[in-house]
C-alpha cells in the first residue's frame, strides 16, 4: 500500500481529534477487511494521509441490554455477534446476518461498525487502478453510473438514482428490521441516525470527522418470529444477491404486525411496506405468503440484467413468511436452533 501515517486512538475523542487534525483526509480502521482492500486497489480518487486505528479504543466491544434497548458497541466483532446467546435468543435475525458475512477469518476481526460503514461492491466503482483503472463513475462524482448500460446483474432493482450500487451490508438489513439507530459522534457532539436512513444513493451519512460509537436497538418484545435469509451463489465469501429479514407478530395464527426488509436490492435496506401492510390481519398460509412476495416487489424496476433478482426477492419474502426455506437459502449452520428455525417451527 502507498504510504500513510498511522495513529492508534485510545478514546473516541482521540479518534475524532485525529480525523479533525487530518481535515477529513484520514480513514478509521477497525477490522481492516474492507479498508485495506480499497487502499490496495486504489480505486478511489483520494488516498488517505492517515489511517487511525480504533481497535485501540477500549470499551467499544459489548452487547448489553438496558432501558428497553439493546446496545452494541461499534467494535463488536461479527463472530461475537453470531455466537451471542442473547442475540440468538432475542435478535436472531442479527445473529444470522452477522454469521452470513464473508468467512470465519473475516468475522473474527470485522466489526459491526465497519460492516455498516463499508463501501459498495459495484464492479465498476471498485475496478482496480493497476489494471488500466480506476473507472470514473457517478459515485466518484465523475460521469454516469456505468452499470446502467453495463453488467448490472448485482445492482439495484429499487429506487435507483445516480448510482445503482446496492448496500452490501448484511447486518444493516437485520438492524433496519429492528429500527435500530446508529449513535454517531463527531466534533459537534453526538447524534443518532436510523440505519434505514443511513444510506443515500451516493454515500452514507457519516461525516468524515465522525465515528460510529454504538448501535441502539429498541427491545424486541412479545411473541415474534424473525428470520434472516441470504441468497448468493455461495454460502461463504459472497455478498448477497438478495437478502430478506422479517419480523412477524402472530396472535392465534393471525399476523398482527409484520416488518420485512430486503437487502442488496437498493442503496439502502429496503422496507417492503406494502407487503407489511397487506400481511397485517392475515392468517398466514401459502397463498398469503405468495401475495406478500408479490407486494414486496411491486415497485421494483430492474435494469437490463437483474430482473432475476425480483423473482428471487419475491421467493425469499414469501418463504420468510410461511414455509420451510429450501436448502439453498443461506442460513447459519452454527446451531440447530437458529432464529430462522424458530420462525419455521410452530407454524406447521
Amino acid at each position: 500500500m502507498r504510504s500513510f501515517s498511522h495513529l492508534n486512538a485510545r478514546t473516541v475523542s482521540e479518534a475524532i481529534a485525529a480525523l479533525v487534525q487530518f481535515d477529513g483526509r484520514a480513514r478509521l480502521n477497525a477490522g481492516g477487511t474492507e479498508l485495506f482492500g480499497a487502499l490496495k486497489d486504489e480505486f478511489l480518487p483520494e488516498y488517505p494521509e492517515a489511517v487511525i486505528n480504533i481497535k485501540s479504543i477500549k470499551g467499544l466491544e459489548y452487547i448489553k441490554e438496558e432501558k428497553g434497548h439493546l446496545r452494541i458497541g461499534a467494535l463488536t466483532k461479527l463472530s461475537v455477534l453470531s455466537e451471542s446467546r442473547l442475540l440468538r435468543e432475542r435478535y436472531g435475525a442479527l445473529a444470522e446476518a452477522a454469521h452470513a458475512v464473508a468467512g470465519p477469518q473475516i468475522r473474527n476481526v470485522a466489526t459491526i461498525g465497519g460492516n455498516l460503514c463499508q463501501d459498495v461492491r459495484c464492479c465498476y466503482y471498485r475496478y482496480p487502478r493497476h489494471i488500466g483503472g480506476p473507472i470514473n463513475c457517478a459515485r466518484k462524482g465523475n460521469g454516469p453510473c456505468l452499470a446502467v448500460n453495463g453488467d448490472n446483474r448485482n445492482h439495484a432493482i429499487f429506487a435507483g438514482r445516480k448510482c445503482f450500487a446496492v448496500c452490501p451490508s448484511d447486518t444493516a438489513v437485520a438492524l433496519a428490521l429492528y429500527d435500530a439507530q446508529l449513535v454517531v459522534v463527531g466534533p459537534q457532539g453526538e447524534r443518532q441516525i436510523a440505519v434505514r436512513d443511513f444510506y443515500t444513493p451516493i454515500e452514507n451519512l457519516l461525516q468524515r470527522t465522525e465515528i460510529v460509537r454504538e448501535i441502539l436497538i429498541p427491545a424486541v418484545t412479545g411473541t415474534v418470529t424473525q428470520s434472516f435469509s441470504k441468497f448468493a451463489l455461495r454460502t461463504p465469501i459472497d455478498f448477497a444477491i438478495v437478502s430478506v429479514a422479517s419480523l412477524i407478530t402472530l396472535e392465534d395464527g393471525i399476523c398482527t404486525d409484520a416488518r420485512i426488509v430486503l437487502g442488496a436490492v437498493a442503496h439502502n435496506p429496503h422496507r417492503a411496506l406494502e407487503a407489511e401492510e397487506f400481511l397485517r390481519g392475515c392468517r398466514l398460509d401459502v397463498e398469503v405468503s405468495r401475495q406478500a412476495g408479490e407486494f414486496a416487489i411491486r415497485e421494483a424496476k430492474p435494469l437490463s440484467k437483474n430482473a432475476f433478482k425480483i423473482q428471487i426477492a419475491k421467493t425469499l419474502v414469501s418463504r420468510a413468511i410461511f414455509g420451510q426455506p429450501a436448502g439453498f437459502v443461506l442460513k447459519g449452520n452454527f446451531s440447530e436452533t437458529t432464529s430462522s428455525t424458530q420462525m419455521c417451527s410452530g407454524k406447521h
Binding site: 498511522h6 481492516g32 477487511t33 485495506f36 486505528n53 477469518q105 473474527n108 465469501i237
Partner: peptide
C-alpha cells in the same frame, strides 16, 4: 485482498487474515 485464506495465521488463538492486518496494529 482478504478473500482466499492462504495467509491465515493465528492471532491470540483465532484464525485471521494476515494480508488484511497491519503489523503496526
Amino acid at each position: 485482498n482478504g478473500a482466499c485464506g492462504s495467509c491465515t495465521v493465528l492471532m491470540d488463538g483465532k484464525a485471521i487474515l494476515s494480508c488484511m492486518t497491519l503489523t503496526v496494529e
